[in-house]
Amino acid sequence: MDATDQKRLLREMLFARRFEERCAEAYHERQIGGFLHLYPGEEACAIGVLEKARPGSDYVVTGYRDHIHALKSGMNPKALMAELFGKETGCSKGRGGSMHLFDPDVHFMGGYALVGGPFPLAAGFAKAIQLRGSDEISICFLGDGANNQGTFHETMNMASLWNLPVLFICENNLYGIGTAIERSTVEINQYKRVAPYGIEAAQCDGQDIDVVMAHAEKAVQHVRGKRKPYFLELMTYRLRGHSMSDSGAYRSKEEVEEWAQRDPIGIYKRRLIEAGVLSEDEFHATDEAIQDEIENEIVRFATESPEPRVEDVARYVYVEGGKQPWLK
């Protein structure tokens, strides 16, 4: 990877961080409502994996901590912020919200609130790919907490049995909401849990984007080449709460501080500076440019966009102008 790409990746992670921080502000200012689950600390996971896939062509699905997966898939950040603001210009026209981002134009298939619900959907995208005989893959990002749902086991079994091209990415941030993994799960190494289903799997550091990309490249090649599922577990950590209403009572300050030392942006920035690819001044200039773009273009767009019209509340229950073969 050349210096241009390295700097682009760092910029993408920093953009993700600043975007999420700005969301938190907007939430406190009540411009964003509902539940809001932010990604700081985990940026290397979505960005590193999708860097090695084909965003826009491969199908991507995840849970409710979905902003950065949507962005890296190719969603316009203005449409994302407008969605969070509940506006008609949002990616889901203000009908979805933070947990239900969609952009089928770039094959970003959502944004789901039920833990574990996307496992079978991802396998379903892969089933359709298999029927079409095309070479896309399906990529499912979920947390460690999802692996205690029945859908995890049911889907692993069927994905393996039917050779479905799905890449399962487990973002293991050590907590299912506010319960530590060792208090909810016998086998805490998540990648070992797919072995009985005959699915190849690996575990790696999710904070170092170079490590993530090395493992993701292999995983993507496996799924795309062999047309079989693969399971990659990324060890990561949320630097913020589960959602905006998190007491934080379940984690020690020491633990959070320890992981903050392993911030993926910090790790990558230091590496690029040490390699002479990047200067501290350049980094700050990039940071300022990002914050300027977020404030003056993205938030401004969301703020100035129109609300959905009340008379449209019942639109999209059924497909408008959908096929009615009986009328022929």
Binding site: G90, C91, S92, K93, G94, R95, G96, H100, F102, D103, P104, M109, G110, G111, R315, Y316, V317, Y318, V319, E320
Partner: peptide, 8 residues
């Protein structure tokens, strides 16, 4: 279909 604003 509804959640996606009619997009899916």
């Amino acid at each position: 279909h509804y959640m996606s604003g009619g997009r899916i």
